[in-house]
Amino acid sequence: MPTIIDITEDKAIEVKNFEFTYAGSDEPNLKNISMPIAKNRVTALIGPSGCGKTTLLRSFNRMHDLYPGNSYAGEILFEGRNILQEKEDMIKLRTQIGMIFQKPTAFPMSIFDNVAYGLRLKGIKNKSELADRVEKALKDAAIWKETSARLKHDANGLSGGQQQRLCIARAIAVEPEVLLFDEPTSALDPISTQGIERLIIELKEKVSILIVTHNMQQAARVSDYTGFMYLGDLIELGRTEDLFVTPCEKLTEEYITGKFG
């Protein structure tokens, strides 16, 4: 049995007996996962490559629905409803639960239009409101200084680290409840990485964060809770300082001491 901490804080999301199977896979790729995601905290997922971190992360905004034949089982409770239900409104869900990808995904349009993209989807047309909210998002993502003078320029002219911040600005502009990060710094240099990590810690005042990382130091630096995954199972979830210092499971200990992975 996995060791999952019973948190006393408010929860943003509660996962119960969740299973996920990719199209064409004989057995579930994620097995019987139960975990809380604490509100306004950073929860990190670590584990060796291929253990299912990305797969789990992409279940929270139903990204797997974009490709046919994938199937979910169990429950993911968010705002009192099970988001795995058939009737779930994907468009609404994805504005409530945002996602940042491994590589920056700046759209082929101006910096301003990138950040305004989600706002316009929400039906905001008023020019001054758009301008205000774009500015606020860029400030919150700590990239306003570099971009304020060139909002009309193509977003692809920004550096990798700047583009990743722009994607964060784009995601927080629509004021989501939860943000999902999939190895957001693996394509970045150390300085940009440090900036993004600092940003993640600041952002948790407003949103609940789930971050996948292959870098244990990063998990230790940014997260309040850490979950260790192995071969599609969640082996252990605990307070970050506990998990790294006194892990309960033997597998966790072996992984964090570098015996495998």
Partner: peptide, 18 residues
């Protein structure tokens, strides 16, 4: 066009035609 770009747009709640 990389599929992550499509996914990023879907992840912001865009319908397919958009």
């Amino acid at each position: 066009v990389p599929s992550t770009l499509r996914e990023a747009a879907f992840a912001l709640g865009a319908p397919k035609y958009k």
